[in-house]
Design a binder for these strands. Structure first.
Length: 858
RNA sequence: GCCCGGGUGGCGGAACUGGCAGACGCGGGGGGCUUAAACCCCCUUGUACGAACGUACGUACGAGUUCGAAUCUCGUCCCGGGCACCA
């Protein structure tokens, strides 16, 4: 290990008295820079569009079939690149070059996802406008990426913070605000079409009155409530420590903020919400048309969390209580009900005798954060409300409890408890002595597996039974209800089907589908983001600004921070930085009905907004009349039915890390589908093929205080690690600033040149695998390039060698095998094995031609 | 607990549809060049036994299918990732 650590400090192989024309880092650098200049001067990597501003139809046709290759664009961090960042970029560059050389018109560029927290926090600390830092960082990253030799079309680069870009982000927001979801046609439509249907009576108003009878305010309420982007009171995640609300996707499993790790509280607040849930089914179903890994598809499916089941209505003293269940067939076994402590009917269902206990339990449950709920080892707790509801199939009175294992945020916030068939209900019933009647006869093998004799006496069962087995005690022939008899049926599917029919026929419930996905909380109380293109009138109603008023530019200020609070101060209220800019907030505008006073929306959009559509802008980056020209979009993104019949269109190859599985990738698909529904796009999906590259990992070291220390100052002695003589512990993680183990590409350029670095990163292993960085291994690729160079160029004179003997038959055959193999490997993005084949060929050629004379071959 | 991946030399990895396990690179050993070293070049390098031709063993572990298994099936263990009181 000690050699390894020393060699991580960059020490180029000494070339002091090497031959004048050896392939050294200096020569590599000279060659690389010369070519990079030439590519710029000759516009080598500018890609023609089929039409429009960047259009050159003849050239586009001459280049061949189109191919859109995309990297997940980076956040322009101040720390600059480390060697882990460009892994995917190098892969897409190699692939793009290969495809260009084999007859494709390749769209390949790179933009910057430049809104976000780090630049804002830096601005708060220094008082300097975040734009200054952001622009600097973008310039630095552009320079670093150029030095890597990436073949981007520089004209197509975008930054989400550019008003010429976010003008269209705001325009798209207005499209979503100006749309509603037609569940009959299963697509979004312009809100004007809804208004027309309401006016004509083709669609009834919510309360059945004629449209003409509604007041203006009532009409606006009806319309605004149907929009795909809605501002209204909703339970949101309030993070006092950050001073802003955050999306569900940005809250960690233990109830803290993804950024900053502050506590997050559920609060009702007036915020922007996008109705991504309207698209839940399509977001799941269309995964089948995508060429993505099963892992990512599964993560999206799980996040959306579609469950088929039924809603069942239980009569109670406070009216009907509706529960959601995936097992309506177990209704005969429902012996009690459980409401979430936050359920709105709890007060109405609590008897005076129980009110103290219920109030105490509720208070405790609400104060408890999700973390603590889990920390208690899942021991179920709850209290009875004192009242009962009626099981609609048996007619029995069943007690109503509240318990915090039932979550308000899923289903209806209430369950029917079937203790014999649900492990949680089983434990709860066991603890509180509630009845557990058996309603299925489990197979003998189940009893054998649990080491007990078959019995229907559930007090002997160690766990609940879940699965297919004949129903027992599942008939209501004796009761007054229309009959339902499941006894003897041994299929859950059949039991569910019959029960659903019975529920619907008797008005006790209906089959339904529930999702875990929540609507997307879209506003943030921050500065460094896109302002909303929205103003409010005196009645507080939102109005979208017309296209001519876009962009709404972010106003200048020197106060960039939202008001933040003690991280645990749950009952604080958000205050956006834009709230303080009174002269910007209050405006007089003519929105078509004369000059009026309005207040601007003072929120900004979440960082995900800009990345929801950037690939579209790459295709037509200079268009100032539309976010993208339809013909250009159709060319680059249109469905490829030649690839598969149900091809949804989209980017041909999208490469990036797996960490965006449910955030960016879900949001971008949602926006894309809205734009498709509204007729702006020919593609149904943004990313037809997704490839998740691995990460570059590296050792990291912590001292006694559990603080990471610079990995390059650590010494190894006798298998232990020390820093300044003190012992430290070794860990393993993704290379980066936070682990203090980042290796800069600049060091690699200086020691070996960019081509060696590129070759090394591609040769380390398959692109989709994570792999540890070993600086000492880089030299192998350097030697390979040196050998290759020496085979072609005289190291003394710098002239091309003219003393090369003709290839012998064996080498000739190997050459052709290599051409074939490399081509196959490149097509499949197996760059590591392609490089190995090229090394083999070079080594063979070296053996044959070294010193100009063929060698004896083993 | 559930759902995905994965486990091959000292290290990163290769082996495409079941057909010579360990390509290629690093590191190690030996040699050449050099006053010497670095750089570079050549040979060698899975383990055990053997001076050597070689022989046996070997792809996490245990069974199985097959003429033949790193690869397919079943079970077990371990590692990584995601989700998790989701009714």
């Amino acid at each position: 290990m000690s050699e390894q650590r020393q060699s991580t400090a960059t020490s180029p192989p000494s070339a002091a008295d090497a031959p004048a024309h050896r392939y050294t880092a200096a020569l590599a650098q000279e060659i690389e820079l010369r070519w990079q200049d030439r590519w710029d001067a000759e516009h080598t990597f500018e890609t023609p569009n089929p039409s429009g501003r960047l259009g050159d139809p003849e050239l586009a046709a001459a280049r061949g079939e189109k191919l859109f290759v995309l990297d997940m664009f980076p956040y322009p961090s101040g720390a600059g690149l480390h060697v882990g960042h460009p892994l995917g970029f190098i892969g897409t560059d190699v692939y793009s070059r290969f495809k260009r050389m084999t007859g494709h018109n390749v769209l390949y560029s790179m933009g910057f996802d430049a809104f976000g927290l780090p630049a804002e926090q830096f601005a708060v600390q220094t008082g300097q406008h975040p734009k200054i830092m952001t622009d600097q960082n973008v310039a630095t990253m552009r320079r670093q990426l150029r030095r890597l030799g990436l073949s981007h079309d520089p004209r197509r680069s975008v930054a989400t913070t550019d008003p010429a870009y976010y003008r269209w982000t705001q325009w798209i927001f207005n499209q979503i605000f100006g749309a509603w979801y037609d569940t009959d046609l299963d697509r979004a439509r312009p809100i004007d079409e809804l208004i027309a249907e309401l006016e004509s009576g083709a669609r009834p108003t919510p309360d059945g009155r004629a449209w003409a009878e509604l007041t203006d305010a009532e009409r606006r309420d009806v319309i605004d409530s149907r929009r795909l982007a809605v501002v209204g009171n909703a339970p949101v995640n309030w993070c006092p420590g950050l001073g802003t609300v955050v999306a569900n996707e940005e809250v960690t499993a233990d109830g803290r903020s993804d950024r900053g790790n502050f506590p997050v509280f559920k609060r009702n607040m007036r915020q922007w919400v996008m109705r991504i849930t309207a698209y839940a089914d399509r977001l799941i179903d269309d995964l089948d048309t995508l060429d993505w890994t099963d892992a990512i598809k599964t993560m999206q499916r799980n996040w959306i969390g579609r469950s088929h089941g039924a809603e069942v209505h239980f009569p109670s003293p406070a009216g009907e209580i509706t529960v959601f269940t995936t097992r309506p067939d177990t209704l005969f076994g429902a012996t009690f009900m459980v409401l979430s402590p936050e359920h709105p009917l709890v007060d109405a269902l609590t008897t005076p005798e129980q009110s103290l206990a219920v109030a105490a339990y509720r208070r405790a449950a609400i104060i408890k954060k999700d973390i603590e709920r889990q920390d208690e080892g899942r021991e179920k707790t709850g209290v009875p409300t004192g009242l009962t509801a009626v099981n609609p199939v048996t007619g029995d009175d069943i007690p109503i409890w509240i318990a915090d294992y039932v979550l308000m945020g899923y289903g209806t916030g209430a369950i029917m408890a079937v203790p014999c068939g649900d492990q949680r209900d089983f434990e709860f019933a066991g603890k509180y002595g509630l009845e557990i009647p058996a309603i299925q006869q489990p197979p003998d093998a189940w009893f054998a597996a649990h080491g007990i004799e078959p019995t229907l006496d559930t007090s002997r069962w160690p766990v609940a039974f879940i699965g297919d087995a004949p129903y027992v005690n599942s008939s209501n022939h004796d009761s007054g209800n229309d009959s339902l008899d499941l006894n003897g049926i041994d299929s859950v599917d059949e039991g569910v089907r019959l029960t659903n029919e019975w529920l619907e026929a008797n008005g006790h419930g209906e089959a339904t589908i529930t999702y875990k996905l929540r609507d997307w909380l879209f506003s943030r109380q921050r500065y460094w983001g896109e302002p909303f293109p929205i103003v409010y009138d005196d009645d507080g109603r939102p109005h979208a600004l017309p296209d001519a008023m876009l962009p709404v530019e972010l106003p200048d200020t020197d106060s960039f921070s939202p008001r933040t609070f003690d991280a645990d101060d749950e009952f604080s209220d958000p205050e956006s930085p834009l709230d303080r800019l009174e002269s910007w907030v209050n405006v007089e505008l003519d929105l078509g009905d004369g000059l009026k006073r309005y207040r601007r929306d003072t929120n900004v959009m979440p960082q995900w907004a800009g990345s929801c559509w950037y690939e579209l802008r790459y295709t037509d980056p200079t268009n100032d009349e539309a976010f993208v020209d339809p013909a250009v979009e159709a060319y680059w993104m249109g469905p490829r039915t030649d690839v598969r019949p149900d091809h949804p269109g989209g980017v041909d190859l999208y490469v990036g890390g797996v960490e965006h599985a449910v955030l960016h990738l879900l949001y971008a698909r949602f926006w894309h589908k809205v734009l498709y529904d509204l007729g702006h796009l020919s593609s149904k999906e943004p990313y037809a093929r997704l490839f998740n590259q691995g990460y570059i990992l590296a050792d990291a070291y912590k001292d006694e205080r559990e603080i990471y220390i610079d990995a390059f100052d650590v010494e190894e002695r006798d298998g232990a690690y020390y820093h300044d003589g003190r012992p430290v512990t070794r860990e393993w993680g993704k290379m980066g600033k936070s682990l203090k183990n980042a290796v800069s590409p600049d060091e690699m350029y200086e020691a070996y040149g960019a081509d060696t670095l590129r070759l090394y990163e591609m040769a380390m292993g398959p692109l989709d695998a994570s792999r540890p960085w070993e600086t000492r291994d880089v030299v192998g690729m350097y030697r390979f390039l040196q050998r290759l160079w020496r085979n072609l160029v005289d190291e003394q004179t710098g002239e091309l060698r003219d003393d090369l003997p003709p290839l012998d038959d064996t080498t000739e055959r190997m050459l052709h095998r290599t051409i074939d193999g490399v081509r196959t490997d490149m097509e499949a993005m197996r760059f590591n094995t392609a490089i190995a084949k090229l090394i083999e060929l070079t080594n063979r050629a070296t053996a044959v031609t070294a010193d100009g004379t063929p060698r004896e071959l083993a």
